[in-house]
Protein backbone atom coordinates (compact mmCIF):
# COMPACT_ATOMS: atom_id res chain seq x y z
CA UNK A 1 0.00 0.00 0.00
CA UNK A 2 1.52 3.30 -1.05
CA UNK A 3 2.28 5.98 1.49
CA UNK A 4 -1.02 7.67 2.22
CA UNK A 5 0.14 10.45 4.47
CA UNK A 6 -2.02 13.57 4.25
CA UNK A 7 -0.11 16.81 4.59
CA UNK A 8 -1.99 20.07 4.93
CA UNK A 9 0.23 23.10 4.85
CA UNK A 10 -0.67 26.76 5.26
CA UNK A 11 -4.12 26.09 3.88
CA UNK A 12 -6.30 29.20 3.68
CA UNK A 13 -9.72 29.83 2.18
CA UNK A 14 -11.08 33.33 2.14
CA UNK A 15 -14.74 33.74 1.26
CA UNK A 16 -16.09 37.21 0.71
CA UNK A 17 -16.58 38.03 4.37
CA UNK A 18 -15.22 35.06 6.30
CA UNK A 19 -11.87 33.36 6.40
CA UNK A 20 -13.27 29.84 6.51
CA UNK A 21 -9.83 28.25 6.88
CA UNK A 22 -6.93 30.31 8.16
CA UNK A 23 -3.33 29.17 7.63
CA UNK A 24 -4.10 25.61 8.69
CA UNK A 25 -1.32 23.00 8.84
CA UNK A 26 -1.47 19.42 10.09
CA UNK A 27 -0.54 15.90 9.05
CA UNK A 28 -2.51 12.68 9.09
CA UNK A 29 -0.58 9.43 9.41
CA UNK A 30 -1.34 6.10 7.71
CA UNK A 31 -2.38 3.21 9.93
CA UNK A 32 -4.22 5.48 12.34
CA UNK A 33 -7.68 6.92 12.67
CA UNK A 34 -7.51 10.69 12.91
CA UNK A 35 -10.49 12.61 14.25
CA UNK A 36 -11.03 16.04 12.74
CA UNK A 37 -12.90 18.08 15.33
CA UNK A 38 -14.17 21.60 15.64
CA UNK A 39 -17.31 23.59 16.41
CA UNK A 40 -19.88 24.34 13.70
CA UNK A 41 -18.38 26.61 11.09
CA UNK A 42 -14.81 25.85 12.15
CA UNK A 43 -13.81 25.09 8.58
CA UNK A 44 -13.68 21.28 8.63
CA UNK A 45 -15.82 20.71 5.56
CA UNK A 46 -14.04 23.47 3.67
CA UNK A 47 -10.65 21.93 4.51
CA UNK A 48 -11.72 18.47 3.38
CA UNK A 49 -13.11 19.91 0.15
CA UNK A 50 -9.83 21.68 -0.51
CA UNK A 51 -7.99 18.42 0.16
CA UNK A 52 -10.11 16.83 -2.61
CA UNK A 53 -9.68 19.80 -4.98
CA UNK A 54 -13.38 20.56 -4.94
CA UNK A 55 -12.71 24.00 -3.53
CA UNK A 56 -9.74 26.07 -4.70
CA UNK A 57 -7.65 27.29 -1.74
CA UNK A 58 -6.81 30.97 -1.50
CA UNK A 59 -3.31 29.86 -0.53
CA UNK A 60 -1.52 26.83 0.85
CA UNK A 61 -1.51 23.20 -0.23
CA UNK A 62 -2.96 19.86 0.74
CA UNK A 63 -1.41 16.65 -0.52
CA UNK A 64 -2.13 12.95 -0.28
CA UNK A 65 0.95 10.74 -0.43
CA UNK A 66 2.83 13.76 -1.72
CA UNK A 67 0.45 14.46 -4.62
CA UNK A 68 -2.31 16.94 -5.08
CA UNK A 69 -5.62 15.10 -5.48
CA UNK A 70 -6.04 16.22 -9.12
CA UNK A 71 -2.63 14.78 -9.96
CA UNK A 72 -3.49 11.27 -8.81
CA UNK A 73 -3.77 9.08 -11.91
CA UNK A 74 -6.48 6.79 -10.47
CA UNK A 75 -7.97 8.84 -7.60
CA UNK A 76 -10.74 6.36 -6.74
CA UNK A 77 -8.18 3.66 -6.03
CA UNK A 78 -6.21 5.91 -3.71
CA UNK A 79 -8.86 7.96 -1.91
CA UNK A 80 -12.41 7.20 -0.89
CA UNK A 81 -14.50 10.13 0.29
CA UNK A 82 -17.80 10.62 2.05
CA UNK A 83 -18.77 14.28 2.06
CA UNK A 84 -21.84 16.27 3.05
CA UNK A 85 -24.09 17.41 0.26
CA UNK A 86 -23.17 14.49 -1.89
CA UNK A 87 -26.07 12.46 -3.10
CA UNK A 88 -27.29 10.32 -5.95
CA UNK A 89 -29.84 11.16 -8.64
CA UNK A 90 -33.24 10.92 -6.96
CA UNK A 91 -34.62 8.63 -9.65
CA UNK A 92 -31.71 6.20 -9.82
CA UNK A 93 -31.39 3.05 -7.73
CA UNK A 94 -28.54 2.69 -5.26
CA UNK A 95 -27.09 -0.18 -7.25
CA UNK A 96 -27.13 1.76 -10.51
CA UNK A 97 -25.57 4.76 -8.80
CA UNK A 98 -22.66 2.59 -7.70
CA UNK A 99 -22.47 0.93 -11.11
CA UNK A 100 -22.20 4.31 -12.83
CA UNK A 101 -19.30 5.09 -10.47
CA UNK A 102 -17.70 1.73 -11.31
CA UNK A 103 -17.89 2.48 -15.03
CA UNK A 104 -16.42 5.95 -14.56
CA UNK A 105 -13.59 4.59 -12.41
CA UNK A 106 -12.91 1.59 -14.64
CA UNK A 107 -13.87 -0.94 -11.97
CA UNK A 108 -15.83 -4.15 -12.60
CA UNK A 109 -19.60 -3.76 -12.03
CA UNK A 110 -19.47 -6.57 -9.48
CA UNK A 111 -17.70 -4.17 -7.08
CA UNK A 112 -21.04 -2.38 -6.70
CA UNK A 113 -22.66 -5.54 -5.30
CA UNK A 114 -19.70 -6.19 -3.02
CA UNK A 115 -19.76 -2.77 -1.38
CA UNK A 116 -23.56 -2.91 -1.05
CA UNK A 117 -23.09 -6.11 0.92
CA UNK A 118 -20.33 -4.47 2.98
CA UNK A 119 -22.55 -1.60 4.13
CA UNK A 120 -25.62 -3.78 4.55
CA UNK A 121 -27.63 -2.05 1.86
CA UNK A 122 -28.27 -5.06 -0.37
CA UNK A 123 -32.00 -5.35 0.51
CA UNK A 124 -32.59 -1.75 -0.64
CA UNK A 125 -30.17 -1.84 -3.57
CA UNK A 126 -32.84 -1.74 -6.26
CA UNK A 127 -34.95 0.99 -4.72
CA UNK A 128 -34.68 4.56 -5.92
CA UNK A 129 -32.45 6.98 -4.01
CA UNK A 130 -35.33 9.35 -3.23
CA UNK A 131 -36.87 6.65 -1.06
CA UNK A 132 -33.75 6.19 1.07
CA UNK A 133 -33.65 7.21 4.72
CA UNK A 134 -30.86 9.46 6.01
CA UNK A 135 -28.88 6.51 7.34
CA UNK A 136 -29.35 4.57 4.08
CA UNK A 137 -28.03 7.55 2.13
CA UNK A 138 -25.04 7.72 4.44
CA UNK A 139 -24.39 4.02 3.94
CA UNK A 140 -24.60 4.45 0.17
CA UNK A 141 -22.00 7.22 0.44
CA UNK A 142 -19.70 4.94 2.45
CA UNK A 143 -20.25 2.17 -0.11
CA UNK A 144 -19.26 4.53 -2.92
CA UNK A 145 -16.12 5.53 -1.02
CA UNK A 146 -15.11 1.87 -0.65
CA UNK A 147 -15.51 1.02 -4.36
CA UNK A 148 -11.86 1.47 -5.31
CA UNK A 149 -10.51 -0.24 -2.16
CA UNK A 150 -8.69 3.00 -1.33
CA UNK A 151 -5.63 3.47 0.86
CA UNK A 152 -6.96 6.76 2.19
CA UNK A 153 -10.43 7.49 3.55
CA UNK A 154 -11.77 10.97 4.05
CA UNK A 155 -15.12 11.13 5.82
CA UNK A 156 -17.10 14.23 6.74
CA UNK A 157 -19.48 13.39 9.59
CA UNK A 158 -20.12 9.85 8.36
CA UNK A 159 -21.99 8.90 11.53
CA UNK A 160 -24.65 11.48 10.70
CA UNK A 161 -27.98 9.65 10.69
CA UNK A 162 -26.59 6.22 11.47
CA UNK A 163 -28.40 4.15 14.08
CA UNK A 164 -26.47 2.85 17.14
CA UNK A 165 -25.86 -0.42 15.37
CA UNK A 166 -24.58 1.48 12.33
CA UNK A 167 -22.29 3.64 14.43
CA UNK A 168 -20.73 0.62 16.03
CA UNK A 169 -20.42 -1.06 12.64
CA UNK A 170 -18.65 2.00 11.30
CA UNK A 171 -16.32 2.19 14.28
CA UNK A 172 -15.26 -1.38 13.61
CA UNK A 173 -14.98 -0.78 9.89
CA UNK A 174 -12.73 2.27 10.30
CA UNK A 175 -10.60 0.64 13.01
CA UNK A 176 -10.16 -2.39 10.76
CA UNK A 177 -9.19 -0.24 7.79
CA UNK A 178 -6.63 1.67 9.85
CA UNK A 179 -5.24 -1.60 11.19
CA UNK A 180 -4.60 -2.62 7.57
CA UNK A 181 -2.34 0.41 7.27
CA UNK A 182 -4.79 2.79 5.63
CA UNK A 183 -5.14 6.45 6.44
CA UNK A 184 -8.49 7.40 7.95
CA UNK A 185 -9.43 11.05 8.42
CA UNK A 186 -12.90 11.50 9.88
CA UNK A 187 -14.68 14.62 11.05
CA UNK A 188 -17.33 14.33 13.73
CA UNK A 189 -19.17 16.08 16.52
CA UNK A 190 -19.65 12.87 18.49
CA UNK A 191 -16.79 13.29 20.94
CA UNK A 192 -17.42 10.18 22.99
CA UNK A 193 -17.46 8.19 19.80
CA UNK A 194 -14.26 9.88 18.69
CA UNK A 195 -12.56 9.11 21.97
CA UNK A 196 -13.39 5.44 21.43
CA UNK A 197 -12.44 5.47 17.75
CA UNK A 198 -9.60 7.87 17.07
CA UNK A 199 -5.88 7.43 17.64
CA UNK A 200 -5.10 11.06 16.84
CA UNK A 201 -7.13 14.23 16.82
CA UNK A 202 -6.85 17.50 14.95
CA UNK A 203 -8.90 20.20 16.66
CA UNK A 204 -9.75 23.38 14.78
CA UNK A 205 -11.74 26.44 15.72
CA UNK A 206 -12.49 29.55 13.70
CA UNK A 207 -10.46 28.16 10.81
CA UNK A 208 -7.27 27.73 12.82
CA UNK A 209 -5.51 24.76 14.33
CA UNK A 210 -6.05 24.52 18.07
CA UNK A 211 -4.36 21.26 18.95
CA UNK A 212 -3.09 18.16 17.17
CA UNK A 213 -1.77 14.90 18.56
CA UNK A 214 -2.63 11.47 19.96
CA UNK A 215 -5.96 11.52 21.84
CA UNK A 216 -4.36 10.54 25.16
CA UNK A 217 -1.77 13.31 24.93
CA UNK A 218 -4.31 15.96 24.03
CA UNK A 219 -6.61 14.91 26.84
CA UNK A 220 -3.91 14.78 29.51
CA UNK A 221 -2.28 18.00 28.38
CA UNK A 222 -5.18 19.98 29.73
CA UNK A 223 -6.64 17.99 32.59
CA UNK A 224 -4.74 16.94 35.72
CA UNK A 225 -5.67 13.30 35.37
CA UNK A 226 -8.41 11.36 37.12
CA UNK A 227 -10.44 12.71 39.98
CA UNK A 228 -12.99 11.08 42.25
CA UNK A 229 -16.56 12.20 42.78
CA UNK A 230 -17.71 11.48 46.33
CA UNK A 231 -21.20 11.87 47.76
CA UNK A 232 -21.62 11.87 51.53
CA UNK A 233 -24.04 13.28 54.14
CA UNK A 234 -21.00 14.44 56.17
CA UNK A 235 -18.77 16.32 53.72
CA UNK A 236 -16.91 18.36 56.32
CA UNK A 237 -15.99 15.30 58.33
CA UNK A 238 -14.66 13.55 55.22
CA UNK A 239 -12.74 16.63 54.15
CA UNK A 240 -11.03 16.68 57.54
CA UNK A 241 -10.24 12.96 57.27
CA UNK A 242 -8.64 13.44 53.85
CA UNK A 243 -6.49 16.26 55.16
CA UNK A 244 -2.87 15.27 55.18
CA UNK A 245 -3.26 12.47 52.62
CA UNK A 246 -2.16 14.73 49.74
CA UNK A 247 -5.69 15.11 48.40
CA UNK A 248 -7.07 18.34 47.04
CA UNK A 249 -10.75 18.58 47.82
CA UNK A 250 -13.35 20.85 46.25
CA UNK A 251 -16.85 20.98 47.62
CA UNK A 252 -19.50 21.05 44.89
CA UNK A 253 -22.26 21.67 47.44
CA UNK A 254 -25.10 19.37 48.51
CA UNK A 255 -22.74 16.79 49.99
CA UNK A 256 -20.78 16.27 46.82
CA UNK A 257 -16.99 16.50 46.81
CA UNK A 258 -14.51 16.38 43.96
CA UNK A 259 -11.27 14.83 45.15
CA UNK A 260 -8.07 14.86 43.15
CA UNK A 261 -4.63 13.50 43.94
CA UNK A 262 -5.71 10.26 45.62
CA UNK A 263 -7.40 7.10 44.38
CA UNK A 264 -10.89 5.94 45.27
CA UNK A 265 -9.39 3.17 47.41
CA UNK A 266 -7.52 5.69 49.58
CA UNK A 267 -10.69 7.74 50.04
CA UNK A 268 -12.72 4.66 50.96
CA UNK A 269 -10.20 3.63 53.59
CA UNK A 270 -10.03 7.14 55.08
CA UNK A 271 -13.83 7.33 55.24
CA UNK A 272 -14.01 3.96 56.92
CA UNK A 273 -11.37 4.99 59.49
CA UNK A 274 -13.20 8.25 60.22
CA UNK A 275 -16.55 6.46 60.34
CA UNK A 276 -18.03 8.57 57.52
CA UNK A 277 -20.91 7.17 55.50
CA UNK A 278 -20.41 7.26 51.73
CA UNK A 279 -23.32 7.19 49.26
CA UNK A 280 -21.24 7.26 46.13
CA UNK A 281 -17.64 6.90 45.11
CA UNK A 282 -16.89 7.27 41.39
CA UNK A 283 -13.61 7.71 39.50
CA UNK A 284 -13.91 10.25 36.67
CA UNK A 285 -11.51 9.99 33.74
CA UNK A 286 -10.80 13.20 31.91
CA UNK A 287 -12.59 13.08 28.59
CA UNK A 288 -12.20 14.47 25.16
CA UNK A 289 -15.47 16.34 25.40
CA UNK A 290 -14.31 18.39 28.38
CA UNK A 291 -10.95 19.12 26.84
CA UNK A 292 -12.57 20.02 23.53
CA UNK A 293 -14.93 22.45 25.19
CA UNK A 294 -12.09 24.06 27.11
CA UNK A 295 -9.93 24.34 24.03
CA UNK A 296 -12.57 25.82 21.81
CA UNK A 297 -14.27 27.91 24.46
CA UNK A 298 -14.45 31.58 23.61
CA UNK A 299 -13.40 31.04 19.99
CA UNK A 300 -16.07 32.59 17.84
CA UNK A 301 -17.83 29.51 16.59
CA UNK A 302 -20.32 30.58 14.00
CA UNK A 303 -18.95 33.45 11.98
Amino acid sequence: MSDGRIVVSGLTKQYRTVTAVDDLSFTVEPGRVTGFLGPNGAGKTTSLRMLLDLVVPTSGTATIGGHRYVDLPEPTRVVGAVLEASAAHAGRTGRNHLRANCIAAGLPLSRADEVLELVGLTPAADRKFKGYSLGMRQRLGIAAAMLGDPAVLVLDEPANGLDPEGIRWMRELLRGLAAEGRTVLVSSHLLNEMQALADDVVIVAAGRLVRQGPVADVVSSLSDGDHVEVFTPEPEKLRAALQGLGASVTADGGGSLAVAGVTAAVIGRAAHAADVVLHQLRTEHPDLEEVFLQLTHGKAAIR
Binding site: L52, L54, V70, P75, V79, L83, A88, A104, A144
Partner: peptide, 18 residues
Protein backbone atom coordinates in the same frame (compact mmCIF):
# COMPACT_ATOMS: atom_id res chain seq x y z
CA UNK B 1 -27.51 21.10 -14.20
CA UNK B 2 -28.54 17.62 -13.09
CA UNK B 3 -25.22 17.42 -11.24
CA UNK B 4 -26.24 20.42 -9.15
CA UNK B 5 -29.93 19.62 -8.95
CA UNK B 6 -29.28 16.17 -7.52
CA UNK B 7 -26.14 17.20 -5.64
CA UNK B 8 -24.04 14.69 -7.51
CA UNK B 9 -21.38 17.21 -8.56
CA UNK B 10 -19.32 16.34 -5.49
CA UNK B 11 -19.36 12.64 -6.28
CA UNK B 12 -18.65 13.26 -9.95
CA UNK B 13 -15.66 15.52 -9.35
CA UNK B 14 -14.26 13.35 -6.56
CA UNK B 15 -14.45 10.45 -9.01
CA UNK B 16 -12.77 12.51 -11.74
CA UNK B 17 -10.97 15.56 -10.37
CA UNK B 18 -9.85 16.65 -13.85
Amino acid sequence: TGEYHHQTATTTFVLTPR
